[in-house]
């Protein structure tokens, strides 16, 4: 099953995603939660805490800074940009904007 949660700001996307992910994991499915928000907070809703949520962002940031390579495969992405969250959910952060840039967003 592959589910994407979308909607207006503040409508509850992140909270819904976190509850879905943990519920799937509890039912015995191996579950990957992907935070594709440029302002990634899914870690907090999953119960990882602020420090770990921010640490994941800095791992992702290292790619933009040229300090590390992009993931070469899905498994590599989940392994290097991911962390184990409660109920066995694996969380990976795939996008984050940490530097202001001119141009169209």
């Amino acid at each position: 099953m592959k589910v994407a949660v979308v909607g207006k700001g503040g409508s509850g996307k992140t909270t819904t995603s976190a509850v879905l992910a943990r519920t799937f994991a509890r039912s015995g499915r191996s579950t990957l939660a992907l935070d594709c928000d440029s302002n990634p907070n899914l870690g907090i809703s999953l119960g990882l805490g602020e420090a770990e949520t921010e640490r994941l962002v800095t791992v992702r940031e290292a790619v933009d800074a040229g300090e590390t390579e992009h993931a070469v495969s899905v498994d590599d992405l989940v392994d290097r940009f991911g962390v184990d969250a409660p109920d066995g959910v694996r969380l990976a952060v795939v996008s984050a904007i940490q530097n202001p840039e001119p141009g169209c967003p």
Partner: peptide, 12 residues
């Protein structure tokens, strides 16, 4: 401005 951190201090 749009929610989040998408370049609010530049173009938009």
């Amino acid at each position: 401005l749009p929610g989040g951190t998408r370049q609010p201090f530049m173009t938009w």
